Simulated assay, not measured.
Amino acid sequence: MKKLVLSLLTVAALSTAALAQSTPVKFGIKAGVAFPNMTFSANGASFSYDTKTSYYVGGTVEFGLSDLISIQPGLTFIDKGTKINSSSFGFDNDDFLTDDDATLNFKYLELPVNAIVNFKAGNAGKIFVGAGPYFAYALSANAKMGSEKEKIEFEDAGFKRTDFGLNFLAGFQLNNGLNIHAGYGLGLGNMADDEEAKAYDASIKHKVFTVGLGFSF
């Protein structure tokens, strides 16, 4: 798996270097608040756990193909997961001997590649919208309830470390490079990775809404 990740990063780096030789390049940084949750399905039934609040931080490289179109790969560290509130499913908190919500936390290194469409907004700046695929690799994970926290071992817990999906984003950028943006990540990869899950045709997928600030220079 490490060889796969290194290979993907190498290909991305070589492609970036080749593209940079022939197109205008802008570098950027970004950070903000993330609102992830996870969807579970099995045997035709599906449901979503509650959204938790987390964060993301990362960098981008934007290659201008024209005044209208640009390509923007990046690298993002993001905390995904979900909140599990027993009251949402009709359980009595006494069954769990606690009033604390539980959270699942997955920390990913994510590689998105987005196609961006830019629209001038008078003399103030530009509006941009975009979409593209992403590949992510989980660096670590844990489950937390109250003051108790337990590390999630991916193979033992039946989770995959890798994930992939689609990004959608939009925002407004001032002429000085400062931007405000929002995005949505739709996970397409099935996180479930054990024989019992396969027997029930089970799938676990990430969804995340993000909003934040960035700067391009």
Rank of each mutant, 00 (worst) to 15 (best):
1 M>V: 14
4 L>F: 04
7 S>G: 13
11 V>R: 00
11 V>I: 13
16 T>G: 11
22 S>N: 08
27 F>P: 04
28 G>L: 11
29 I>C: 08
30 K>V: 13
34 A>C: 10
37 N>D: 15
45 A>Y: 08
46 S>K: 07
47 F>E: 12
47 F>A: 10
48 S>W: 03
48 S>R: 08
50 D>F: 02
51 T>W: 04
51 T>D: 12
53 T>M: 13
54 S>V: 05
54 S>H: 03
55 Y>F: 12
59 G>S: 09
59 G>V: 02
62 E>C: 07
63 F>W: 03
64 G>P: 02
64 G>S: 11
65 L>Y: 06
68 L>A: 07
69 I>E: 08
70 S>N: 05
71 I>H: 00
72 Q>E: 15
76 T>N: 10
76 T>D: 15
78 I>E: 06
78 I>P: 00
81 G>Q: 03
83 K>R: 08
87 S>Y: 07
89 F>W: 04
90 G>Q: 05
90 G>Y: 03
91 F>Q: 11
91 F>Y: 13
94 D>F: 07
96 F>C: 08
98 T>V: 11
99 D>R: 03
101 D>A: 09
103 T>N: 08
104 L>C: 06
104 L>F: 03
105 N>I: 12
107 K>A: 10
109 L>E: 02
109 L>R: 01
112 P>M: 04
118 N>T: 12
120 K>V: 15
123 N>A: 15
125 G>E: 07
125 G>S: 05
126 K>Q: 11
128 F>D: 01
129 V>F: 09
129 V>E: 13
130 G>H: 01
132 G>H: 02
135 F>M: 11
135 F>R: 01
135 F>I: 14
135 F>H: 01
137 Y>W: 08
138 A>G: 08
139 L>G: 10
140 S>K: 09
148 E>G: 10
152 I>C: 07
152 I>R: 00
153 E>H: 07
159 F>G: 02
163 D>L: 04
164 F>G: 07
167 N>A: 10
168 F>D: 10
171 G>M: 05
174 L>H: 02
176 N>P: 10
184 Y>Q: 11
184 Y>S: 09
187 G>M: 01
189 G>R: 04
193 D>C: 09
194 D>Y: 05
194 D>Q: 08
195 E>L: 13
199 A>Q: 07
200 Y>Q: 08
201 D>V: 12
202 A>F: 05
208 V>R: 00
209 F>E: 14
210 T>I: 14
213 L>E: 10
213 L>C: 07
214 G>D: 08
214 G>R: 01
214 G>M: 05
215 F>Y: 13
217 F>W: 09
217 F>K: 00
